[in-house]
Nucleic acid binder design. Structure first.
Length: 822
RNA sequence: GCGGAUGUGGUGAAAUUGGUAUACACGCUAGACUUAGGAUCUAGUGCCUUUGGCGUGGAGGUUCGACUCCUCUCAUCCGUACCA
């Protein structure tokens, strides 16, 4: 057969079009609605419809699709859906830039990307697809928000946001570049603004505790990150009473403030107290010129810096000229404002014990504040355990015990109490933007904040808006916000804030599980959700390790408690994939280092694109793009396709192992090694790269022999193993060679293939590899040692053997030292 | 700053979890076939001062034996709460 014909013979375009049509016609990937079959719910995180798919998507969906197809082959009822995370800022940015309506832009992008994805031959359920900007989706989300409000989980509060006075708009952190607005370069202000919050802290304990149920199922680093993020800590809360002079200085407006500490044991070591720059007392001092102008300006600048900038900056602070009274000793303690005290945690006020806290120490050192040691031990700051000193009646007590005792004592004296604090902050869900789900509330002069009536949902976005980037288009709309109060029917104002897009991605996994025929009647169906959830395998980028996954866990639990379903955790197993890089950098349009998946599919076909992305690196790792390696993936598929000529059609023959050549035996070993590997790869490790490598080795080994039976068996198994990865060509070959019978059977490993009659032992002397000996399988340890010493005689000259180690089937290690007297 | 990860040939990576470091693939070199080659096939390919020595970011340590365990350290990446 000439090479030219081989090249012509593998035609991915033709094969892929053929199979994609078959799958479409057969509706091959729609799950069954019977809720009794064994099931697998395989979900790759849904995409944001940015316009075109990128390699990160290809990777995400290639992984999910391989897993879904694997389980389908094992007769599971498989739910493998896709949808569109369709609200969000890029649509508004595009609207400003290209003068196109966000809705149009979004739905056009979805149409385009849908075509791109379908060219990859992904086995998605088509009937369950939706976009989160569909009013049918918004409708139910708004109902959930109203129910959460009824349950006391949604509240309104004022907080600081990034504000650009020029654009008259709130800026996301990513829209702030070096303290300035990304669009107009105006300096960004921090501004107080009311917003809606979901009380995730109420669920903090459950969210933390349930991480344990995910052990071994989620990557441990994600569990650690979430645990640290929730940041539960047990400590002491107490009030600092202002000294009489300070009360007077503050015009009698303040008596005291509350601080939280996890180090109650060090309370006798307090040498100052520090307040966040936005603390009410600091504000009062600045506004009433109780510090020098120069210092007031610095404090204002500090308050205006973002939290992250402040923490990253060097320690900075200013004495406020007031003092508080130590709750136990009655000493007067100076009060400072400091940039390392966060307004968002522990009330924005701390007691400072420089002797036993690194930050406090650094600050005290810089500003020459007193440092008082209260735990015996090493160099200051001393943060380890030890016995107390300078601590009145608690002296000589172990500090861990003193922690409890001091809290108990203060509770008894009614001057403090034990408290659990979380680093986790409540979830701000409102955004001053157009392209989001409207928050379904109305502001009524008589009734206050009133939820929209359920029967009036959805509160839909008006289409006729002008998006300029200045202000909130909903707020500026001529008529939209004017409405009547659902309660008293008087004139009222509609809420113009919309929901954070994380809200939509917090329940989509429940919506997918609900049969589409019910989508008009219910948001999520209890029986459906109880059957399909948790998601048996969730796949997505590591960048979502904290926020999205935590919010989705929280939302799922809340909906459970509101009676919508009975599931505790939405994602049973999680796989976090690494980024796709080019020349060591994240692919991005601005760097011009993108690879267009469309072009790749056109040139090589979807199977090659999928094979390459799974072969190039394990999914958990970053994937470095390499054009010529793609060629290699293509060559492997073509080679596999070509080898169909080696197969006896439709007939698996019985193989007599004893009659096979050495090469044929090796080939069988390689084939069965690949098979042996496969279930662990598809179900647990997801190291597709090693499975593909094993299949390549098997094919290479098959090529070195010519036994028809071994060839047939080899191709039969390899096609089965690779079908989830390269489904088009695998189905094509399997149909032609085996009537696709090899996809139906569960293949079993034949142990006799691995039986060896001799074993190669490596001989190490003094920890270095020196020789090899081949012995028959039942050789005794003594004989192996003798053989090893013989083989390594050269290195044993003048050496004394100190220790002999035999690792069965592997190696002999002889520990040696020079003979004395030589 | 804080939290989490990653680091192995020229490149992407593998290593049965403490037991022959570099499987598989890319690239490169040489050869074969060819009018031609961005095709295919064959052989070779960690590094060096090559009877040997050195090698898994760097420095120590534990062990008969370390990519794997421990301590310290450097670099890169992810997240850091209004990007998704």
């Amino acid at each position: 057969m000439s090479n030219r014909i081989i090249i012509m013979s593998y035609n991915p375009q033709e094969i892929e079009a053929k199979w994609q049509k078959i799958w479409d016609d057969e509706e091959a990937f729609e799950p069954s609605d019977s809720l009794t079959q064994k099931k697998k719910y395989i979900l790759s995180m849904f995409p944001y419809p940015s316009g075109r798919i990128h390699m990160g998507h290809v990777r995400n969906y290639a992984i999910g699709d391989a897993i879904a197809r694997y389980y389908r082959k094992q007769d599971y009822n498989v739910l493998h859906p896709i949808g569109w995370d369709a609200f969000g800022m890029p649509a508004e940015n595009a609207a400003i830039k290209y003068k196109q309506h966000p809705k149009k832009w979004t739905y056009e992008n979805i149409d385009y990307m849908k075509k791109e994805l379908s060219a990859l031959g992904l086995s998605f359920s088509k009937t369950r697809e939706f976009a989160t900007c569909d009013e049918l989706y918004t409708r139910w989300e708004q109902e959930f928000i109203i129910k959460m409000h009824e349950a006391g989980l949604l509240y309104r509060e004022s907080t600081t946001v990034n504000w650009c006075e020029e654009c008259h708009t709130v800026l996301a952190n990513e829209q702030v570049e070096e303290g300035c607005c990304w669009r107009c370069e105006n300096e960004v202000q921090l501004k107080e603004m009311p917003g809606y919050y979901l009380d995730i802290i109420k669920y903090a304990d459950e969210l933390l505790d349930d991480l344990q149920t995910l052990e071994e199922k989620w990557p441990s680093q994600v569990l650690t990150m979430q645990g640290n993020w929730i940041g539960r800590s047990q400590g002491l809360e107490f009030d600092f009473e202002l000294s009489p002079q300070s009360k007077a200085k503050l015009g009698g407006k303040f008596d005291k403030y509350t601080v939280f500490t996890t180090r109650a044991d060090t309370i006798y070591g307090i040498s100052y107290s520090a307040l966040a720059a936005e603390h009410q007392i600091v504000k009062y001092i600045v506004e009433n010129s109780l510090v020098e102008d120069k210092i007031a300006k610095k404090i204002v600048a500090m308050a205006n810096a973002s939290e992250r900038d402040r923490i990253q900056a060097d320690k900075e602070g200013y004495a406020l000229g007031i003092t508080v009274i130590h709750p136990l000793t009655g000493e007067e303690i100076p009060v400072w404002t400091a940039n390392f005290v966060l307004a968002s945690y522990g009330g924005g006020a701390v007691m400072a014990v420089p002797a036993h806290d690194e930050r406090d120490f650094e600050f005290a050192h810089k500003y020459d504040l007193p440092i008082k040691r209260v735990i015996c031990g090493g160099e200051l700051p001393y943060i380890d355990e030890g016995l107390l000193e300078n601590s009145a009646e608690f002296n000589a007590m172990k500090n861990t015990k003193a922690k409890e005792k001091i809290i108990a004592f203060m509770e008894q004296e009614n001057i403090g109490k034990g408290k659990i604090n979380f680093k986790l902050r409540n979830w701000g869900v409102s955004r001053q933007r157009y392209w989001g789900a409207p928050i379904p509330f109305v502001h009524c002069d008589s009734c206050g904040l009133v939820p929209e009536k359920i029967e009036n949902l959805p509160v839909a976005l008006p289409d006729d808006v002008e998006i300029t980037g200045a202000g909130n288009p909903l707020d500026k709309h001529a008529t939209w916000k004017y409405c009547t109060c659902p309660k008293c029917s008087k004139d009222a104002i509609r809420e113009t804030d919309t929901l954070d897009t994380f809200v939509q991605s917090s329940w989509y996994q429940l919506r997918f599980a609900t049969q589409p025929s019910k989508w008009h009647e219910v948001g999520i169906d209890k029986a459906d959700v109880n059957y399909w959830l948790g998601v048996d395998q969730y796949i997505g980028g590591i960048e979502h390790a904290i926020l999205h996954l935590l919010y989705a866990r929280f939302f799922t639990k809340v909906l459970r408690d509101l009676g919508y379903h009975d599931i505790d955790e939405p994602f049973e197993r999680l796989l976090t994939q690494g980024m796709v890089l080019m020349d060591g950098a994240k692919m991005s349009k601005s760097k011009g280092n993108t690879v267009d998946p469309d072009a790749l599919v056109q040139k090589y076909g979807a199977d090659t694109a999928r094979l390459f992305t799974l072969f190039a690196a394990p999914p958990q790792k970053e994937l470095e793009w390499n054009d010529s390696a793609v060629d290699g993936a293509f060559r492997f598929i073509r080679k596999l396709y070509d080898r169909k000529s080696k197969v006896e059609h439709r007939a698996l023959v019985e193989i007599d192992q004893s009659t096979l050549s050495k090469e044929s035996k090796t080939a069988r070993v390689k084939v069965y090694e690949a098979l042996q590997k496969s279930s662990n790869v598809y179900e647990k490790s997801f190291a597709f790269n090693t499975l593909i490598a094993a299949c390549m080795e098997a094919l290479n080994a098959l090529d070195k022999q010519d036994d028809l039976g071994v060839w047939t068996e080899g191709i039969y198994i390899i096609l089965n193993l690779l079908e989830p990865i390269i489904p088009h060509v695998a189905n094509e070959l399997s149909e032609e060679l085996f009537d696709r019978e090899n996809f139906k059977a569960v293949l079993e490993v034949k142990d006799e293939v691995f039986v060896k009659d001799s074993i190669l032992y490596m001989v190490m002397i003094g920890g270095k590899k020196r020789a090899e000996v081949e012995v028959s399988a039942n050789t005794s340890q003594e004989e192996i040692l003798t053989a090893a010493k013989e083989a390594g005689a050269k290195w044993l000259k003048n050496m004394q053997i100190v220790k002999e180690i035999v690792v069965p089937n592997k190696l002999v290690n002889l520990a040696v030292k020079p003979k004395i007297g030589k």
